[in-house]
Amino acid sequence: MNISLKLRLSIMHLMLLALLLTIFSYGIFITNKKFLIDTTAIRLRAQAKPVIESWMSVPNSIFPFDKVKLDQFALDLSSRDTKALILDNSGNILSWGNHLITEPLSVLPDKFYYSISLSGENEVTYIAKEKSGIFLVVLIPLRGAPASHKILGLVQLSTPLSGVYEILDRQKLMLKLGIIILLISGAAAGYWITWLSLKDLTSMVKVCNTIAEGDLDLRIDLPKRKDEIGQVANAFDNMISRIEELFTAQNRFIANAAHELRTPMTSLQGSLEVLMRGAQ
């Protein structure tokens, strides 16, 4: 494939830059996504904690289960963008924080996660994908006392992540635009740096072609370059100097040999002429 070294180096530089930018952007995106989701989970816990402590501090306020009180408890835990479910220790729904009974539940309990929470985990957080959207779900165990190991039930808080994903979509778009701009800038800068680095190499080719035509007095002469190109240029100049010395010595030898052979040949020619005249 007849592609110049300059272009090959520029393409390699562009591919490496694209790979690094992609990895870096992906890392930023994942880190920011985790931060936004963790922040949302912290907000849900912070909103629910005083409500749970207030209700659980009153003996027999909820347990044994009182449907009216459980409904009020669930409503207190709910807000405009947060739905609360009260589950027993078997995962059954006891109450939900809907303002109307006809309102659909946002996220149904997941047996796998509430079994983990019932096994002793203080809090369990996970993301649920429903037909109505993507939700962040937080499960908080309800204990009879703060230090008690007995779990009486669970509070499930769920909130839609549509706002978080809107932010992430905007960030994704900005990262893509940033990658495109940086790739264009990087390609231009990479091509210029490559051209600057290989400029002397192009001059070397021109000098070599001129020397090949017979001009052995010409030299590349790159004393300021100490890199590999400078070393090649210096080695080439030394080689041409040596070749020129050999040609000079060869020409001198030929000239001396011709001079040394000219005198005996002249004498021999004179002797032959004398012999030829004597024979006549």
Rank of each mutant, 00 (worst) to 15 (best):
I3W: 14
L16V: 14
L16P: 02
L21G: 00
T31V: 13
T31W: 15
N32I: 13
K33G: 12
K34W: 09
I37N: 00
T40R: 07
A41D: 03
L44K: 04
Q47A: 14
A48I: 11
E53F: 10
M56Q: 15
V68Q: 03
L87W: 06
N89G: 13
L94I: 12
S95H: 06
W96C: 01
N98M: 04
T102Y: 07
T102G: 03
I116S: 02
S117Y: 01
L118S: 13
E121N: 11
E121T: 08
V124N: 01
Y126F: 10
Y126Q: 01
A128P: 00
L139Y: 05
H149V: 09
V155H: 09
Q156G: 07
P160Q: 00
S162W: 00
G163L: 03
L168Y: 10
Q171L: 13
L173W: 15
I179P: 03
I180P: 00
S185Q: 12
I193Y: 14
T194P: 06
W195P: 06
K199N: 13
D200W: 02
V207F: 10
V207D: 10
E213T: 14
G214H: 11
G214L: 11
L218R: 09
Q231W: 02
A233S: 03
S241H: 05
R242S: 14
F247H: 12
N256F: 03
H259P: 01
S267D: 07
G270S: 06
G270T: 05
E273M: 02
E273K: 07
